[in-house]
Design a protein around this nucleic acid. Sequence first.
RNA 1: GCGCCCAUCGUUCAACGGAUAGGACAUGGGAUUGCGGAUCCCAUAAUUGAGGUUCGAUUCCUCAUGGGCGCACCA
Length: 533
Amino acid sequence: MLKAIIDLIKKSVKSDINFDVFAPENAVFGHYSTNVALRLAKIRKQPPLEIAEEIRVAVQAVAPQGFFEKIEIAAPGFINFWLSPQTLQNELKEILIKKERYGQSNVKGQMSKVLLEFLSANPTGPIHIGNGRGAFLGDALANILRFAGYAVKTEYYVNNARVSEQIKNLGKTAIGESDAYPYVGELYFKKNQALKKRLGKLSASEAGYALADHIQKLNSDFIKKKLKIKFNDFFEEESLFKSGEVEAGLKLLKKKKLTYEQDGALWFKAAGFGDSEDRVLVRSGGAPTYFLTDLAYHINKFLKRKFDKAINIWGADHHGYAPRLKFALKALAVKEERFEIIIAQFVRLVRGGKEVKMSKRKGDIETLEKLIDEVGLDAARFFFLAHTAGSHIDFDIKLARERSLKNPVYYVQYAYVRCLSILHKIKNQKSKIKNTNQNLKLKLLNTPEDIKLIRELTRFPEIVEDISKNYQVHNLVRYALELSRNFHNFYEKERVITDNKDLSQSRLALANGVLIVLKNTLELLGISLLEKM
RNA sequence: GCGCCCAUCGUUCAACGGAUAGGACAUGGGAUUGCGGAUCCCAUAAUUGAGGUUCGAUUCCUCAUGGGCGCACCA
């Protein structure tokens, strides 16, 4: 379809034009629609409806016999396409053959090696609810990108540099010289007096480093066992000092004449690359800033490990920092399209309609662990993944608990269980219906419910492909809900097990298709597949 | 003061610049003799305001209003 359209355009227009082929939200406009005639109208100085008709004829000429049910033209100039039942039935066959590979693709050529960094909570305290958003988003996005054919590594950056202010302050807190992190005693020393004793003998910097190590171990353990998120690597900031990469990074910047000294500090000429002001790399006391080590970290990502692309998921409180790093990488000739920062807006915590103000006073931290204990991992994960990263969302803890049984995640899981239940029933009945792809009479799947359900299944690869480009993971959550709805609807109106053996056989194939796609979807999202509920 | 993000049914979230703005929760009705009722069907209900660009604007631009977050030789 695209080919016919593009060929036609090439013949008639010299300049490039942008047009879309999309699946309309409203089913009355067909399975696919295009606005190409509208876009072409001005260039060709011709009425859109006339162009649309021309394209319709051209598409029909190259389409295989019976591929489309119909192609209609609608004012002001859309061309709407309906796939024939036969086309859809063939696609169902594809699903049954490809199974868990259905929707998978291979990215060839450039930009296929991707580093996805996310979560990266400071090792100065527990992981809180706000971190949850980036955590689930990163994990699901990694799954989706891998499925779409990218070679993805996931990484968690541990900010544990001995020389950093935060580690020193953490250390001071540990040895009783500060109360910068007032919850430390309650959370980490109360049940571990030995740790407190051990740290008490150390300098602030060493105590901070050791405590950060202890905290990070607890956090990593939580991530692995309770969040069920696996990282390929935990990359330690401190390691950049040990390896000499911080020094090397500094040398590189100096060599490129991107630095200067002023007020005893070393500055990076960020303003020259579009930043609002220059930035400090080395403080007047001689200590490197976070910016310098972070830059060394990104030099490591791009120049040492040679990732084609680095995607960072950050909380909204870091958005002001993003331009600095972007401009610095630009100065080092790292192409802009190789670096992507996804800003996840804050989650506003609400309890029974009232905002919960996060405070560092002890016992007042809304940890992600507490939330998961209250509402369950699947429900929490589904909630966070359901919204686009840019929106400011409210999380009502009270409501989440009260309504945990009404969480939409169960709607999806129930669809899966229901589907599975039918297949088990057939198996147990030792019926004559066989679970096989041989001699299927898929043309029997011709009721509106059959067609609608198959069509929904065939959207899966398109959704995955879109997300691999726009990173809008919430679209897959919405798809999971829509597919489930379609299945529940189908279930009410049609039967899988009927008196007609051939029809039953075909419907069984359809149920298998639903199971396959639903499984693929939930696995990408990281939502559990339940056998029964 | 400057910058980034957000504003959509009662509530909470969707909608690559496309056609009749979609779902969930809440509210009000309805669905029993067959595959699991954690389901299905129906109804009520929304684009913050004022301009602009466009064949077409919830979407882009300007201003206003109201929120979130930044603006360190913290991370």
